[in-house]
Amino acid sequence: MSKIHDCVAELHRLPGVKGAALITNDGLVVASSLAESLQSDVISGLTSYLLMTTQRCLEEGGLGKATQYVLTATHGKAIVVSIDDSSLVLMLDQFADLAAARREASEAAQRIRRASRLA
């Protein structure tokens, strides 16, 4: 469990990252490391909404499962990586390097996957 926490905390230390959290698909927070301005319950609820809504629509359309979401907004960015029954969420500021953050998020997701199998 501490490995998962470490992964999440490590992501938060990257430049431009305002916070990272691992949440289950039904909205429970497994681990989080967030800036003061971010609330883990808000992020978990909204991520759950985003995943459930789009996943249902994709499945109904016969498109299968989504593995990653990258959102760019006026004042920030977000990356959501699907890990089995949970998701890794990265909140970034608007100047963050999206490509680098995507790479880091994918690597962290793999580490979390391994750690959760061992646990």
Binding site: L46, T54, L63, G64, V70, L71, G76
Partner: peptide, 29 residues
């Protein structure tokens, strides 16, 4: 799917106070 993704992303970013979602990419199978 395009409509739903746009709407869900919009709501996600607005609620998180990071403005309107202008670009969204969803990866999958």
């Amino acid at each position: 799917v395009v409509r739903v993704v746009a709407k869900a992303a919009h709501r996600f970013t607005r609620r998180l106070d990071i403005g309107s979602a202008s670009k969204t990419v969803v990866d999958g199978d």
